[in-house]
Structure formats: structure tokens, C-alpha cells
Amino acid sequence: MEDIKTSWDIVELSRQQDRMTGHELIDLIFEDFIEFHGDRSIGDDKAIVGGIASLKGKPVTVIGVQKGKNLSDNIETNFGQPSPEGYRKALRLMKQAEKFNRPIICFVNTPGAYSGATAEERGQGSAIATNLLEMSGLSVPVISILTGEGGSGGALALSVANEVWIMENATYSILSPEGFATILWKDGSKAKEASELMKMTAKDLLENKIVDKIILEYNGEKKLTNEEIANNLQEELEKALDRYSLMSKEDIKLNREIRFRKY
């Protein structure tokens, strides 16, 4: 039945406010989550949540983009658009994970990195660039899961991972279809047409080997509950991390490098 959905249908589904947030996913999948705050430089970006938790008894570092479920949440979390200090907080937690040899799991759902004046003043480009560079060298396994919108460099900055998974109705793209249509045709209202060309749905992305796995949101026609999706994710994560636990640090790095060298 998924075949009936157009790319635009999926774009709209990926943006729905009732999708699980970073916080919800973390609470459903892990135990003993302790949230850590701040980039140790200028502030604490609420668009990114992160900390340590256990996955079936094993310590992990978890990081998620936090999109709100209503307007007041969204004002606090800036509609899931991280600022430079958010990316720096994420990186701080990743380096901490590396020190203590913990796997890293990222949940990504962002329309894009924040594009306000403060973001430029605080070096949004530099913050993303640093994350890409540092993530490329992490010696612990990283699994990133696109759970809603995967918007551009802002999503990539949490997705230089050994494995990139995507939820059935999530997207990943170079830019929003609206932005894409504006740049190429000077007409943002052609977003629908743009979305068809952009190959941004889970199915297209798997075909193009941009993602490694699709996490189902439906069983046939039946929509899975949040708990069911989280249980599946928990099982998949456990299996994946078991695989990486047998690999040396060098091999974990090499595995990630080979994954991205093919592009």
C-alpha cells in the first residue's frame, strides 16, 4: 500500500507533529536516561537532547533532535532547528562517549540547522564542519536514525554514522522541497514537483544506498503504535551493537570511512 503514497505525501507525514520526538524515543527505547546539558561555551540548545542511558543493560550515549509537539514546545526547541551550540553539545557528548567507549545513537528529525542571525554569528557553518570532521574519526560505533525530516547539513551533522537508518515515512534531502524549488525555479510553490525529483523518501534513499535500513511504521495497513516501533528499534539496535562489539576501534573507523567513501 505504501506504493500509493507520493513523495509529497511522505514529506507531509514526515512533518506531522505527532511523530515521536527525540525525548520520547529515548524514553521508550532506553533505561536510566540521564540528560546532560550545555556546550561548555555559550549555552544549552534545547533543540538537541542528549545524555547517557542503558540499552538492555549496556551503556550508550544518546542524542536526539527535539522537535516540539505544539507551538509552545516548538518555541522552546526552535522547531527542531539546532543552533551551533546544539551541534557543539552533541559533539561534546560524542567525544565523551568515545572516551568511555560507549556506542552513540542519534535520532535526527530537523527541517535544517537554524538559519537566524545568531546562528551565523556563532558559526553555524563551522559547527557543522567540525561535527563532520570529528564524527569521521570516532572510534566507537555510531548509528543515526532519521525519524522525521532529515534537512540538509543540519541533519548530516548528526549522521556521519556507521549505519544510517530511516523510518518508513521520514525523509532526507539536500534542502527542503520548498527551498529547492525556490533555488532552481524561483518558485517555492513548486515544492510538490520538487519532492518527486529529489528522491528523498525512505524507499528512494535505500535504493540509492544513502540509508542502510528502513524502520517500519506500518504492518500492512495497520499503523504500529509508538511502543511497537520503539520495541523494533530496540531489537535492531541491540543486534547492530552486538556486531560492532566484536570489531576493533580501527575497524569501526574503517567501516564508517568505507561507507562514505563510496559516494
Binding site: 564542519a129 563532520l132 549522521s159 532526507y172 534531502s173 529529489m198 544513502i210 570511512e257
Partner: peptide, 18 residues
């Protein structure tokens, strides 16, 4: 990034970083 090459352009940013 080159819009016409879509998500593959985005992947170049990561590839070069390695």
C-alpha cells in the same frame, strides 16, 4: 551543494571530511 545532484551532493561533505 549542487542542487541537481540532490542528496549525493550532501554526501560529498562527509566524504571529503574523512
Amino acid at each position: 551543494a549542487r542542487m541537481q545532484e540532490g542528496i549525493f551532493s550532501l554526501m560529498q561533505m562527509a566524504k571529503i571530511s574523512f
